[in-house]
Design a protein around this nucleic acid. Sequence first.
DNA 1: ATTCGGATTCTCT
DNA 2: GAGAATCCGAATA
Length: 207
Amino acid sequence: MQPLHQIFYLRDSLVVARDLLGKTLVRQVGDKHYAFKIVETEAYRGEFDKASHAYGGKLTNRTRPMFQAGGITYIYLIYGMYYCLNIVTNNESIPHAVLIRALQPLDDEAIRYAALNRPIKSKKVQDLTNGPGKLCKALVIDKTLNEVDVTEKGSLWIAESITEENNMKDFEIIEDKRINIPYAMEYQDVLWRFYINHNQFVSVLKK
DNA sequence: ATTCGGATTCTCT
DNA sequence: GAGAATCCGAATA
């Protein structure tokens, strides 16, 4: 299993958000690997996207990672208590990013790791990683993993899909509005959220 | 089944 | 000082 090359990320976040579906996110701690399938994403496009933290090219300490070349993480704290994981895309100085909204554990090891770090009452496995805040908690992703290079093996990286089905893109992609961006004016209704149809780990289904 | 509010703290003005 | 790319439990219907 090899990391996706940086070329993959040097494109518009709208394209990368779709292409990341079915790919494998690897959380590496010590000599252990925990593998998860990416099943739901959202594209944020800084220049003119009012939902983006980098709207209008706004460069601050927080948004700085988005202005780097694609292939690194952008992680921020939201509502004072949850982290969100984004993958920066496009070229340097174009602040595009893809929010990872839901993951599916690919084996029992991954499930155990998630359950250990995010104890919940629910018996449903889906509830461990079916949301952007949930998956960060379950995979122990916080600000210390900000600006991590996901194109090389390390604490967090992304690989090609591990199953033939996903490599063939043999699944239907649903397009829908992004979640919880009421302040984004005309951009709150664009269909920039993508998820794998019928996947049990998706956080919010289209109405 | 759907709606509502509280938790909690970083970030920017 | 305001507000946030969320989650969960409680209340309502």
